[in-house]
Nucleic acid binder design. Sequence first.
RNA 1: GGCGUGUUCGUCUAACGGUUAGGACGGAGCCCUCUCAAGGCUUAAAUACGGGUUCGAUUCCCGUACGCGCUACCA
Length: 480
Amino acid sequence: MDNVRVRFAPSPTGYLHVGGLRTALYNYLFAKRNNGTFILRIEDTDQSRKVEGAVENLISSLTWAGVEFDEGPGKEGAFGPYVQSQRLHHYWWQTQQLVDADKAYCCFCTPERLEKVREQQIAEKKSITYDRLCREIPQTEARKRVEAGEPYVVRMKVPLEGEVTFDDMIRGTVTIANAILDDQVLLKTDGYPTYHLAVVVDDHAMQISHVIRGEEWLPSTPKHVLLYQFFGWDLPVFAHLPLLLNPDGSKLSKRQGDVAVEDYRTKGYLKEALVNFIAFLGWNPGDTREIFSLQELVNEFSFERVGKSGAVFNIDKLNWLNQQHIRLKTEDELLVTVKPMLAEKGWTGLPDDYLKRVIALLKDRITVMPDFTTECTFFYEDPKSFDEKGRAKNWGADTAGHLSVIMEKYAACEDFTAATTEQLLRAAAEELHVSAGKLIHPVRLAATGVSLGPSLFHVLEVLGKETTLRRMTYAIETLG
RNA sequence: GGCGUGUUCGUCUAACGGUUAGGACGGAGCCCUCUCAAGGCUUAAAUACGGGUUCGAUUCCCGUACGCGCUACCA
């Protein structure tokens, strides 16, 4: 496919929604797969919904996820600016063309009147559309009223008959009768365009080849198609993505869990996992592979394999994927994020080498990054207390005695590795005529304070001889 | 209300007229084992309903039901 240009066009409402991330991702994957260009455009045509810092936040979430745009705010290309509030003259100019061509008209109805009309329509159970009161005002009269300073909007003049048909890469052919289409407002009283005008004008101006967006836009696409026809422009190819859903089937919303990309980031999800997970909400490679890197997604993505129905955002699957991606990382890579997390908890000064050995032991057993700092804290400091259940179960009257036998062997041990500490412990068990388990559990409790964690002897090896003996001594002192 | 759109295990999905309807997450059980995990194995679990078309429908068509979306001078 040549000259693919696609865009992700969010409105800056404060943060990047995971549904938005998926839309951005599919755009990105499609662009990269086809040697195209991925554009970020900010749709800030609603002055009342301005949020400070929202654009920066959007960009930082996108960048974090690795979904990098080729053109957009801060990366000016040949089609900028990429922020709609900086392109107002375009919309104004195009609107004039439409009015001159009798494809649009000025409407002087007040919000109050519109509200009344709507109320009546609801009361009469009629469909809710503008009653087209101003549609037939002669242009000369309209111009006069505008010049006199009367507030107005510009509405598109939807043909009363006929129908609009367009193709969608995901839905197939969609047809809607013009008769049910509203005379959509194109230019608001404040001089800003509505989404419907701006999206068409900009997609054309920026030479967008494929419009890939959420399914919620499907019903307004016919108006957009009409606008393309009014202007005499070629239609882009449309693809309306299925929605992301809450567990109860409604559109994914804030009320039922985290929806901001940054929430998942701070909770310790890897970008690789989030991207992988979100890509699979609506797309699959056609076989049973599930673990994909961004590059692998780029290599295989196609709209032929994008489904039509909404997908529930299932956190269990995300957890599992995160686990899988953590395993794929090297200790060095993990260290980069683990170290600051430890520092936050006051654990500093531990050598990288040591930390990497800890990570190696832990990385197969955790699901999110903070688990590194919460699951086995004994790697970072001596236990101050001992797990009560473990003590009750594994610490008996003869335990102290048993441990001293082991400590004696460990103290004399030159080669404090997992293999030798295990060998020495099993030898001690034989001497004492007890099962190895009878010793292993108390030693674990003494060395770690808890009764969970990686293989004991590997833990001891990482902890080292000195620490192990110190902790065992302390345990005997406090537990008796 | 109108319009649109969708419907395969609880969830994500595969099967583009012929399969014992497959996989994954989650669940259950077993194994492994020094604990907790991880891992391995096994298992329960689905084609919304009704009509067609066809030798044969998960698959194609129609209807019904249900879900969702849209119905703003919000995007």
